[in-house]
Structure formats: structure tokens, C-alpha cells
Design a protein around this nucleic acid. Sequence first.
DNA 1: GCCGGCCGTGGTAACGTCAACAATCCGGAG
DNA 2: CTCCGGATTGTTGACGTTACCACGGCCGGC
Lengths: 331, 331
Amino acid sequence: MSQRRVSMAMVAERAGVSGQTVSRVANDSPKVDPATRARVEQAMAELGYRPNRAARALRTGRSQTLGLVAQTLATVGNSRMLQSVAESAASRGYALTVVTLGAEAAIDQAFDRLRDQGVDGAIVLNEATALARDAASAGLRLVVIDSPPDDRFTVIGTDHAAGARAATVHLLAAGHRTVHHLAGPVDSFAAAERERGWREALAAAGVAPDEPARGDWGSESGYRALERMLRTVSPTAIFAANDQMALGALRALADSGRRVPEDVAVVGFDDVADAAQYQPPLTTLQQDFDALGERAVAALIARIEQGGDSSASPAAGGVLIEPRLVRRRSA
Amino acid sequence: MSQRRVSMAMVAERAGVSGQTVSRVANDSPKVDPATRARVEQAMAELGYRPNRAARALRTGRSQTLGLVAQTLATVGNSRMLQSVAESAASRGYALTVVTLGAEAAIDQAFDRLRDQGVDGAIVLNEATALARDAASAGLRLVVIDSPPDDRFTVIGTDHAAGARAATVHLLAAGHRTVHHLAGPVDSFAAAERERGWREALAAAGVAPDEPARGDWGSESGYRALERMLRTVSPTAIFAANDQMALGALRALADSGRRVPEDVAVVGFDDVADAAQYQPPLTTLQQDFDALGERAVAALIARIEQGGDSSASPAAGGVLIEPRLVRRRSA
DNA sequence: GCCGGCCGTGGTAACGTCAACAATCCGGAG
DNA sequence: CTCCGGATTGTTGACGTTACCACGGCCGGC
């Protein structure tokens, strides 16, 4: 097996052409004679040539690498987004490097790191919106998932409000007088949108909403929030801001002796893989993570390859994808 | 704001030294006068200098980048590993690029891609063990998580068998005559180890195991596997190979009118975030993903920085981390 | 007081690639 | 027959960094 890495020069020598011609073949430039191209390609294959990305990046200033920034990757939604982003990027010939915001102090470092690594652009997952602003003005090409619109970057996301309206309408249509909301954390854009959709649907039906109980997305917070809610009211329909909180809610309802859906109907949001195995199986809103990732990558690459400065066509390609109501037993 | 990227030459000029000295400061070589160093550092700060990774990689042959290979990242275990690996790598100054094996055909391409991107080494998550062999012999420095020992790469993992024994012993100690197993897929090393531990514990207690029911890790497969099991036997104690299958099992038991833990005790494996909100809260084995990721990164970097050929100290640093039994209501 | 050696520093080249330009070859037009 | 233009191919740097070697100055030892 060959000891050293194969460079263009070696391929060139073997094929009896200049390095430049090898370069042209590697980047399939049209200006190469078919016969020559064939010879070069054979030499590449024989030697097992692989272009050196570092050299290419140095020369062109493009690393063919995308960054993904997230507070954490260990949540259901983020990891599914990541999966989809990774595949989309790979299929377009881009590498993907991930940066998490672990410690709070590291937040401003995150984008620095990204730039050091020479990514051509980055995708930011929801919760980091605030700093995306700084980064964008610092000249990094960005696509942000689930963010309020901002002309410094492209925004892609789920239409959370529409989903929340669908959930609420579904419950009202089933005959419930009102719908109680188990909301997500206040600093989350997605949570705010879902809450807004719920309020809008209630308003449209002419009913005044109770103040929502609030959790932090985690299932345990859902349990506790519902416990609190049950101390003051006796809901017949609950719209939880995500499936995990809904799971906690289901347990709290069971603990209080209520049956779902006979006594209380529950709708979640996300359609996590396990939602169909909850007790009872959870009616929920399915987000199309694959489409989101695909769109985000496409938008980012378009922005990169269109070249130009990042302020050229700022919010181009922003899209909201509507979630789909999946009916199961819980409502 | 400065238009172009700041290079060493600019810093050198501003500090009145040669580029070489700037390089020494950037890599904090000891051979530089404190006063000079201070001047250079100030110049760096004023100009906002950031070393160019591509150039460095080209020159040194090291990219300060690690790869992570996984079949998918959208599972609970893998995403938690990823999170931990990402943070460990970042804290040691390495970037992390992820490669998923999406399509089957892409399997052999995955490692090629990794090498193209010039990673210094890679961490492989369990299910991809088979190809790790090829990659390792192809000269890539590897750490594999949850794999049978192999002298071509370092192996780090959870001691699945020990966890399974603990679960089984726990159930036997509670007075159950035998323990039924809800096993994972046959091609998974972790699943095989968990099954082995279960068999060993039963053997030690002198009871002959029933053939395990088998699922694919998913909660729905757990539901169906348990349904099948209930057609032939009436278990009093079940050890499920992971929490998600346990979730499906809980629902199947509820559907069949059995109470947990009164009629049937259930133990899972993983301690996913939601396990405490299952009905009833699930007794399970907690894997220390953070420790795994940390160790894996440490082992890989050690191997990289020790330099030398990859066959030098092959299986160095392999570690098994024992999971911890978390007792909740289900058993 | 001379010499060997260490310390801090600078100069030069090279890593592998690609952009710009120069060179060559061909056929066909004038 | 010469000249022109298009199509292919080659030559020459440069991207930003670091490895290697060389240089001047200072120290202590003889």
C-alpha cells in the first residue's frame, strides 16, 4: 500500500500531463479532451488519488464545510434536525462540523470557533437566535431554524402557530368548551409561536384562555406543570407544547385518577418516535424535520455559491413548513 | 472593519518581528522572549488575528479535526454520545465533523469521505463495527464505541453484560422464579452482550432461560414482541434490552390488563430522559454517556498526538464503563 | 581573551491546489 | 501559403503556515 498521500503531481506524472490538467479533471472543467480526461481518470483510480481539502481550501478560500450550531444536540428535535442536515450536506458534497454551546460562557466563542474552522456558512438551531445576530453581522453566512424574521439571515422553520391552531381547533371541534395549554419555556421562539397559535384559535372561537402552565420541554416539567394546573382547574382538553411534556402530563392525569381520552383529551407536538407507544398513544403534530434540514442546507449553499457579500439577498428563501396532525387515541 | 482576513504577515509587520516569531507565539513555543511575546500578542489582539486552519493543516498534515461516524444520529443513545463527544473534542481544541451512513450503498464511502476531509482520526458508534475493520487497516486512526475487541482500534464501551446481570439479579432477588428477556437486534453487539449477561445471571441462579423475544430497539417493536410473548407465556419479570422497547412492553402489558409492577416487573436499559415519566416510572440501567464520550475522545487524541504509526500501541486505553441501576417503580 | 554553546530571532522553502496567463496545435479562411 | 481563432495544454506563482537551518549576541570555562 502506498506510504504517502497521493498528490496531483503524482497523478500528473503517471498520466503524462501537467498538474493543471489533473486539476481540471478533478473539478471537471469542460475544457479537457475526452481522451486526456480518460487517461487522467485512470491514473487517479490506479493511484487512489483524493484531492487534499486543506490545500484546496487554502487556495480557494472555500472549505466546502458547513457548521451546525446548537445549544445541545441531545434533544429529540435537534438530533433529528442534525441527522437530516448531515445527510443533505453530504449529498451535496459538503462536510458538516458541529458546535454545541455547552457552557454559557462559550457562547460568543462558538461562532469564533466556527470561523476559525473556516466553515463557509452555518445553520443555527432555534435557541441560539440572539447570538446569531452578532455572528451574521460579523460576516458569517447563516441560516437560522425557527427564528423570528431577521434580514441578516435566512429563516427556515416549522409553522408552529399553524400547528397549534390545528391542535386547538381539533379539540374544540370534539366538543370541548375550552383548551388548556401546557406551554414551553418563555425564551423559546417555537414555544411562543405555539402559544400564540393556541390563543388565536381560542379567540376565534370566542373563548378566553386560562393562563397556561409552563414547563421547560422536559417530561418531568410536564408532570409538575400539570400537577399545578390540576390544583386550580379541571381541564377536559390539554394542548401540550411538545410530546415530552405531554408524556409527563399523561402520567399526572393517570396519577390523579383521570382517564385519557375519556375524561381529558391531550394533544402534543413533534411526533417523537415513541409517541405511538404512550398510554394512550398520543395525538400530536408531526414536524417534517427532513424537509426542514433539506431546505436549510439548500438555502445556505445557495447563498454560499451565489457568492457575493452576505448582505446581497438577505432573507432569501425563507420558508415555513406546516406540521401535520397525527390522530391517535389521546384526542 | 478590516476587509481581508488577517494573516501572520500582517501581525508580524505590526509587531515588528518576523512571521516565524508570530508562528512561535501562536503555537506557544517556549523559545520566545516574554517581551516579544507580549508585543506579538497585542498585535494579534488589535488586528483580531485568527490562525488559518487550512494553511496549518496543509503544512502540518494535521487538521485538528475528529470525525464521528454513525449509522444514524437520530437515536437517543447516539445523540447523547454525540453531544458528549462534541464537547470533549471542543474543549481539547479539536473540531468535530459528523458522517452518517444514511444509504446502505454509502457505507464504504463514509470512511473515504472522512479521509478526504483530512480528519486526524475518527470515533465510530457501535453499529458500524464491521466496516471499521477495513477503515482501520486503511490507516485511519479509530476509536470504536461498543465493539468486540480488535487490535486494529481502541474499543471503549459500556459493560452491557454487567448491566444485564445486575438487572436480572435484581429481579431474581425480588423473588421472581425466572426473568424473560426482550432482546435487541441480532446484529448489534450491545444487544448480544446484554443478552449474554442475562443468560449468565440466570445460569448462575440455576434457571434455564426461555428463548428471548426480539425487537429492533424501537418502542413499537417492543410492543409487538411482548404481544407475541404473552401468547405463549405469562412472565412475572421482564428485562428489556433498552428503555424504548420497555416502553412498548409497558403498553402491551397494560393492554393485556396486567399491572406493573404488581403482576409483572419490568427493567429497561439506558435511562433515557423520559424513563422517569413512563407509567409506571421505569427501573433501568443508566449509561454514563458523558464518560464514554470523554474517554473516547481522550483515547483518540492520545493516539493521534503520540504520533507514530497507527499499529504502534493498538488497543491501548480500551475501557468498559459499568452502568448503574436506577430503581423506580416498575421493578 | 578566545572558544563552544545556548538563546532568541530571521530567512527560505515547501505543503497541494488553483487562477491567470502563455504556449501550442489544429483546421479553415483569405 | 500565411494568418487567425478556437480548443487544449503547460507554466508560473500565490494562498498562510510551519520545518529547517543559519545568524548574531551573550555566557561561562579554560
